[in-house]
Structures are given as C-alpha cells and as structure tokens.
Design a protein around this nucleic acid. Structure first.
Ligand SMILES: [Mn+2]
Ligand SMILES: [Mn+2]
Ligand SMILES: [Mn+2]
Ligand SMILES: [Mn+2]
Lengths: 221, 221
DNA sequence: AAGTATTTTTAGGTTAATCTAAAAATTTAT
DNA sequence: ATAAATTTTTAGATTAACCTAAAAATACTT
C-alpha cells in the first residue's frame, strides 16, 4: 500500500463530491474550481491518481473513482464530520467555526483514533450542519428531506440541514433562530418574490427570502 | 508573517530539544540524527530557517534559536502534550499509544482550538508521561525530581515521569505497576549490578534493573 | 459542415524537501 | 604541528505540487 499525500486526499474528496452529485465523470475544470487551482495542475494530479488506481481517467473524458478511491474519499468525509461534531459538542465551537479546523483534522492518520472518537461522541449519524456521517464502509444514512423552498403552504416540518455552509449563512440562521431541530410551519408564500412567512415553534412568525428557503433542508412532518 | 511548513516546525522542535538540553548550539549531525535525515538536508533546511529568522546560523558553528523560533517550538510541544492528555484522558488510549498520533495533531493550526482544548482538559500541567506542558508563553512548570537511580536506600518518593518514551518501556512499566503516581520506597541497592529492590505502595516489593532505575523520575517525599 | 468558443492537455519552469557523492573545514590524535 | 578522522558544506539530481503559455481536442453555433 503506497502512501497518499494530503493533497491527493483532498483531490479525491473533491472528485468524489463532484462525480457523486452529477452522477457522471468529473471534468478537469470542475475539479480545478473545487481545488482553487489551474486546470493544468489538475491534469497533472489526475494522472498520478490514475497511476495509483484511485481514479479512472481517459484523456478529455473526465474522471470517475475506483472502489479504492471512493473508500479514501468517504473515510475522509467521515473523519471531517466526526471532528466537526467533536468541535461543536465537546469544545463548544459554533457551527460556523468548525469547517476549517476539520479540514485539517480529517488528514490525521489513525484508524484507532476515529474508532474511539466515534465511540466517544456516541456514534453520531449527522454532523453539526445536518450532513450524514458515513459509516466505516462509506455508507451514508439516507434521510427524506426537501428544500424549504419546495414546501407547500400549511406544511410542517423540522429544519435538519443546510445547503450553504458559509459562515455568513450559518450566522444569519443563528440570529434568526433557525437552527437545526427547529420546528416550522409554512404560513404563506408571497408569489411576488417567493419569500416565505413561516411559524417557528408555535409562537414566532418570521419572513425569509427565497434564497434562504433554497438553502434549508426540512424533514416534513 | 510567512507560513511555516510542518517540516520546518519539526526541525524547530528538534533543534529546540537538542539546544535546550545541551545549553549550546545544536550540531548539524545531532539534528540529522533527530530528524532521521542526512546532514546535507539539515544544512539546507537550516539555511532556510535562518533566512526566516527562526534560527541563528553560522557555517560550521551550529544552530541556536531565535525568540520567534523558540515560540514556535514551545507552542508545538504544548500542542503535542495537550493532545496526548486528550487521547489518554478522553479517548482512553494508553500512554504508549499516543505519541505518534500527537506527532500529527501538533501541527493543526488554530489558536482557538488549543485554548479550548486546554480548557476542556482542565488546564493540565503535565502530559501522560509526566512531561510538563508549557503555557501560552512557552514557560514550563518546573518540578524538583531525581532519577530513581540517584536515590539513596530508605528514601521515599512518587513516580512522576519517564526518561525513556518507547512503547517497550511504557508497557513494561504498566506490567510492573510502575505507573505515574505510584509511591515507592527504595529498600536496597545491590552493588553488584546496581539493581534496586523497592517497595510499591506499602505492600509489594519488586526488583528493577539499573537501566530501569535510570529511566524513572521520582519526586522525593 | 465549417468556424468559433471552450475545455483539456502538453511543454517548460519553479520551489520545497529530499538524496548521494565529493569537497572543504574543523577537531582529534600522534 | 602535521596527519588522520570527523563533521559540515557544496554540487548536482530527483520528486511532488504547483504555475503560465501554447497546442490540441472537443463542443457549440450558425
Ligand atoms: Mn465542513
Ligand atoms: Mn459539516
Ligand atoms: Mn509524545
Ligand atoms: Mn509525552
């Protein structure tokens, strides 16, 4: 088993996320954008990953992942999300502060460490942003959820995740008391700009923009 | 402030430990041995560190650290030891398993993370091996301690640290119930091979070799 | 289908961190 | 104080990860 650098790990994670979402090969440009690097560098790295059988690559045809590559990517995602839980639950960080630190912690190499961390955190299934934490085999818990923007008037549900992970958005949600677990009921949608009036818990009513509604995942009641 | 690579950090820590112990400049060869690398590589790196004003370097004269370099080194040691406490206290690792993981964790960049970790661990002053954890300013708690080998017959004390951090030694200590905090009384020293008979707590008597006695720190009663 | 735009690859170069082999300086021994 | 041994530095290469600019392939338009 040859060693895999942090950079290679990061590429694999990026490719996984792109290819997963699109259900088709990841393009050089898409990877370059995700990694904030040049297309030339991506081609370079792809060749190396392909050489190590971590991705399948055909010139001009894009990249897909091998089983081995997928395993590395999902393990990395697992580690990232477990560390985020640790930072929020144990060290009392807020959900908008943990991503960058987890981005580093996810590269710590120790199977045992993750096993024990998982146990210490009581085997969480979701991270602080509501994203599922894959198990040791890379299997994600599936949860039936919709974007708030897709709900109908009078429907009720619970906020379970975010589609935008920026600090700005997360801090906005904190200020609006739109944290995970909050029960909501869609009161009215204003056709003019698709803004939404909704009920939080069973007391406060607030209005949110279309943009916000497109970045919140809700589990319907 | 230019960025410092993990490799540079590791060199600084190694140089710090060498120069600290010897109270004189660290030699190229000593650094090479500590880093398991060639003398040529060390010369190379030293020049770069010197360029960044992290060490003082004169050709053929060895290396000493600047204030900035020292700060980086002690911060690294602080982080390493805090993580070791975390691994043992919270994740239930044993003291012979934590070094390699801490060796990675010490490079995570986040001031806030360390502040919170320190708080979470209740501001420990010593790590699982009895080594002092420097404060934010790089100041170590000093503790009056002697090697068990230097004690006289009939003297009493408490085991507070180890001078050898290898797994083999730590596991041997576990098996012999010579863990930190154990109270001991030196019963007799056998002149033939300088082995020592001692009392553990106030019940069991055991005999240890000279070598073992030279690797255990004791705080005299 | 040809021409234009876009994407991707190649070519050639840089920097950090390493190496081995050889040269130079310093230290130790005679 | 010379010679021998040791330490340290220099020289020259290599590899991973990046870059820019140019060439090649593919995709989109008319
Ligand atoms: Mn994250
Ligand atoms: Mn997350
Ligand atoms: Mn250690
Ligand atoms: Mn330690």
């Amino acid at each position: 088993m040859e060693s895999i650098s942090q950079t290679e790990e990061n590429y694999l994670k990026a490719i996984y996320k792109i290819a997963e979402r699109a259900e088709k090969p990841a393009s050089t440009n898409a990877i370059a954008a995700a990694m904030s690097t040049s297309a030339a560098s991506v081609t370079d790295m792809i060749k190396r990953l392909s050489e190590k059988d971590l991705v399948n690559y055909e010139r001009y045809r894009g990249v897909t992942m091998t089983k081995t590559g997928q395993k590395i990517a999902t393990t990395l995602i697992r580690k990232h999300r477990l560390w985020e839980v640790f930072l929020v639950e144990k060290l009392d960080f807020s959900w908008d502060e943990v991503h960058d630190i987890a981005e580093q912690l996810e590269h710590i190499q120790s199977r045992e460490l993750i096993t024990r961390l998982d146990e210490y955190l009581k085997f969480p299934r979701f991270d602080p942003h509501g994203d599922p934490i894959p198990d040791e085999d890379g299997v994600f818990t599936f949860r039936k959820q919709v974007l708030l923007a897709e709900m109908e008037e009078a429907e009720e549900g619970v906020i379970v995740g975010v589609h935008d992970h920026t600090s700005d958005f997360l801090q906005y949600l904190d200020r609006m008391k739109l944290t995970l677990g909050t029960e909501i009921k869609l009161v009215e949608r204003y056709a003019y700009d698709d803004s939404i009036k909704m009920l939080l818990g069973d007391s406060k009513e607030i209005v949110i923009s279309k943009k916000v509604s497109q970045h919140l995942f809700v589990q319907k009641k």
